[in-house]
Amino acid sequence: MRLSLAACLTCLAPAAMADTPVLTVLTYDSFTSEWGPGPAVEKAFEASCGCDLVFVPAGDGAALLARLQLEGAASDADVVLGLDTGLTAAAAATGLFAPHGQPAATTLPVPYDDPLFLPYDWGWFAFVYDKTKVPTPPASFADLAAGSLKVVIQDPRSSTPGLGLLLWVKEAYGEGAAEIWQALADNVVTVTPGWSEAYGLFLAGEADMVLSYSTSPAYHRIAEADDTKDWAQFSEGHYLQVEVSGLLAGSDQPDLAKAFLAFTQSPDFQSVIPQTNWMYPAADIALPEGFETARPEKSLLMPADRAGAIRDLAVTEWQAALAR
């Protein structure tokens, strides 16, 4: 029954959509949600492309690459949107991506030009706190480790911010990363599977600080008129999360896919980003009022291949330090 149903659905699908080409974009769930950029992006792109833009949500950012690996070359997707720079080495190694041919994004604080992956937004990882409860936030990892403030972080094995924090510490401390993690162990209240659980625990008062983004306070300021949240400036610098999209070599709509990647750099797409994804836009557009109060003095970002190469070691180090 299942087989015949499946056969029937596959034979009907092309007939029904013969006149409008379909562009399939594999992305993470919160991009496509009603509160993410998805709906506005879809409307804007469909207004000009003469196509049907379909977002296929695949859990969170880490699940996205796993999904792609599962589907392999058989994937129906034309574009993957939402990988971050901690994952691009593994994504490139699948051999499923084709060069995007677009000029590099303009607003990143560090040079980033990857032939396979095109940034559409970015942000700095930062520890967010409540100004009314923490009058003097720590000014560095060393400061945080020496004090008694409690933080909640994400597990690098299931979450992209969690992995970002690992790379941040590794980039800032190199060989000394394990030592810093051991010093931080008593500050870590707990580790959550994903960003939203950690942020929820922070808002519920379980921790003084949470690993999030320097743009998180902007949500509270702009959407909730609540100016109590801020982020702590760390002297080691702040690691970047760069969210990228890429073309799949197996796409049956390569031209449309290229047009979509170009569209991700246009004002129509970029202007949606700050107040839906709460990240910095990758192209030069005006930021909303109150979006940022300060920028980190120093930005950190590992080259993708190095990030890919040290992931396993960094996780082992982290596990050993926090398991004590």
């Binding site: 597990d155 094995r157 299931s158 209240v189 580790v191 599977p193 596990q319």
Partner: peptide
């Protein structure tokens, strides 16, 4: 994971996630 307080509370299901 959340109530175990971190990686010392790794279960089989978490290892599967990994």
């Amino acid at each position: 994971l959340v109530l175990g307080g971190g990686p010392r509370a790794t279960t089989l299901e978490l290892a599967i996630y990994q």
